[in-house]
Design a binder for these strands. Structure first.
Lengths: 191, 191, 191, 191
DNA sequence: AATGAATGAGGATTCATTCAT
DNA sequence: GATGAATGAATCCTCATTCAT
C-alpha cells in the first residue's frame, strides 16, 4: 500500500535494520533479504533506495558515525575544562548509543570491510582523523605539543577496548571510560 | 603424482596460502579454490585435509598465533629484567613476522570472524588471555597487584595499534613498540 | 499537474521514446522505466495507457510502419511511370525517416521479437505483404506475371540491406536505394 | 558422477543446447538454467565451462558459423567452374544444416544481439566479410571488377531471405537457393 | 491524469562441498 | 594421495506490474 513521502522513513528503517542485522550476525555476511525483512519491506525496495548492498552498508556506517558525532558534540558542549573536554570525548566513545553490543559488533565489521572497500575506507578514515584531532584539540592546553601524540595513543586505546568488548571481554562502558581517562590522567601527570 | 609423506607439506602450504589470501583480500571472503590454487593444489585437497573452509580458517589462525607465541618465547628468553620481559612481549607483537601488512589484515579479519564462529572465538580468547597474563606476569615484580590492570591496558593498546595499522595509519613496528613501551614506562612511574 | 486531453500527447511521446530507446540499445532489453523517463512521464503512466510493455512495443512497431507507409504513399503520389512507382517504394524504404540508424536498429529488434510474439508477428506480416504487393503492383505493367517473383526478390534484398546497415556496414540510404534499383532494372532487362 | 575428460563433451552439449534453446524461443531471452537442463547438466557447470551467459552465446554463434564454414568448404571442393563455386556458396547458405528453422531463428537472434554486444558483433563481422569475399572471389573470373559489388548484393539478398524464412515466409532452402542463383545469373548476363 | 511506492518473481552468478576415478 | 567434474543452495539484483493517493 504505497503512500507518499515514505522515502526518508524507509531509508532510516533500512539503515537501522542493517546495523541491527550486522551487529547480531557479527559480520557483513548478511543478506539484503534479511535486512529488508527486518525493516518490514521487500528486498526490492532496499535496492530501489540504496542501489545495492554495498551502498546500504556505507549508509549504515555513516549513520553510526553520525550517532557518535552527535554524542561527542553533546559531551563537548557540557564540558567546562580542557580535561573535561577530553574526558567527554572518551565518554562519548563508550556511551550507551555507541557501546551497545550490536553497535560495537557492527563497528568492528565495518573496520574489516574498510580494508577492501574504498568507500568504507574513506569514511572510516574521516572518523579516525576526527577522533584524533578532537582529542588533540582538547588536550593541547594541557599537553602542548605532546597533545597530538597523546591523542593518538588514546585513540588507539579506545579502538583496542572496542575490539575486546566486541569479543566479550570487558564489563561495561563506564569501566572502559574510566580506564582510558585514568591512563590519560597519568600520562598528563608524567609530563 | 601423489607421493607419500606429503600431508604435512600440503597442510602447511594450504595454511600459509590461506593467510596470504585473507591478508591480501583483507577479509574472509576468499574462495577455497583461490587458496588451493595459491598453494598449488586442487580445491578438493583442501577439503580432504581440513574438512572444510571453516577448519582451514581456524588452522590459519592457529598458525598465526603460533608464530606470535614463538616470537614471544624468543623475546622472553633473551630478556634479563622484568621490564625487559614486558618490553619483549610488546616487541614480539610488532615484530616483522606479526606486523607484516597481510598478517595484520588477516588478524583483523580473524577478530571479526571470532564474533560469529565459536571455534575461532575460543582460539582468540586463548591468545588474548595469554597475552594479558604474559604481560601481567612480567609486570608483577614492578607493579604488584596493579600488574593485571596495567597488562589489560597495554593489551588493548596493542590491539588498537594493530587495527590502525591495518587501515594504513601507522608507520612501522618499531614506532608502535616504542609507543606502547613509552606508555608502559610512564604508567609504571606514575605509581 | 494533470490536464485534460493529454492522452494522445502522452501516447505519442511514449511510442517515440520506445523507438528511440530500443534503437539506441539495439534490442528490446529496455526497461519501461527508461522509456517512461525519456518520455518525461512515470513508468506507471506507460502501463496506464498501454497496458504493458508488450503493447507498448507493438504500438511502436505500428508507428514505425505508419511512418513507412506514409513515405511510400508520398513517393507513389509523385511517381509518373511504373518504374518510377517501383523506384519510389524502394526510395521510401531507405528514406531518412526509415533509415536513421536507431530506426533501423529498432526494425531489426522488432523482426526478432516477431519470432516469439504473436501480435508482433501479425503486424510484421502485414507490412511484409504490403511491401511485396506494393512492389508487385508497380512492376506488373513492366514484368507481367514475373512481377510477383521480382517483388519478392527486391523485398528480400531491401531487408538484407537493412540488416547490414544495422550492423554498421553500408554507407547511406541513397547508395542502398541505388543498389536495389540497379538490380531491379537489370532484372527487368533480363526479361 | 564425475568422470575425467568430460570437458569437450559438456562444452559441445551446452553449445548445442544453447542453439536449440535460442532457436526454439526465437530470442536470446533464454535462461542458463534451461540451456543447462537441456544439455543434461547443472547451471553451475555452464558457468564453470563458459564463464557466463554471454560467453555461451558467443560460443554458440561461433559453432553455427563453423557449421556454415564447413558447408561452404565442402561445396567449394566439389565445384568445377567459377559459377559452380558461387552457386555452391549460395547453396551452402541454404543447406539443411544452416536452414533448419531453429538455426535460422538463432542466426537472426545473434544478428540483433550483435547490435549491442561487442564480441558478438566482431564475430558476425568476420562471417559477413568472409561471405562477401568468398562470393567475390568466385565471381571474379566472370564479373571482373564488378565482382565485389555483385557479391555484396547477393550477400544482402541471402540475409534478406534468411529473415523472411525466420518469419515463416519461404518454402524451403532449395527455392531460396534457386532464387539467389537466378538473380546471380541474370546479373551476370546483364553485363 | 499522474505519480512513485512497493512488490515479488525470475535469473545470473558464485562457491563450498562431494565424489568417482 | 590427488584431481577436477559436478552439483545446488544461496544471494544479489532487475524490472514489469500494481495500486493507494
Amino acid at each position: 500500500m504505497p503512500r507518499v513521502g515514505m522515502e526518508p522513513i524507509r531509508r532510516e528503517a533500512l539503515v537501522k535494520a542493517t546495523i541491527a542485522e550486522v551487529g547480531r550476525k557479527g559480520s557483513l555476511d548478511v543478506t539484503v533479504a534479511h535486512i529488508a525483512a527486518r525493516a518490514g519491506v521487500s528486498s526490492g525496495l532496499a535496492h530501489h533506495y540504496f542501489g545495492g548492498k554495498e551502498d546500504l552498508i556505507v549508509a549504515a556506517m555513516r549513520h553510526i558515525m553520525q550517532i557518535y558525532g552527535t554524542a561527542v558534540r553533546d559531551e563537548l558542549r557540557a564540558a567546562a575544562s580542557p580535561r573535561a573536554r577530553a574526558a567527554g570525548i572518551v565518554r562519548a566513545s563508550f556511551g550507551p548509543a555507541n557501546f551497545a553490543p550490536e553497535v560495537v559488533a557492527a563497528w568492528l565489521s565495518f573496520y574489516v570491510h574498510a580494508q577492501s572497500a574504498t568507500g568504507a575506507r574513506r569514511l572510516l578514515g574521516i572518523y579516525q582523523r576526527r577522533l584524533v584531532s578532537n582529542l588533540a584539540d582538547a588536550l593541547r592546553p594541557l599537553a602542548g605539543e605532546r597533545a597530538r601524540d597523546l591523542a593518538e595513543t588514546l585513540a588507539a586505546l579506545i579502538d583496542g577496548l572496542y575490539i575486546r568488548h566486541a569479543l566479550g571481554d570487558l564489563p561495561d562502558g563506564a569501566a572502559a571510560s574510566a580506564r582510558v581517562i585514568g591512563v590519560m590522567d597519568r600520562l598528563l601527570e608524567a609530563a
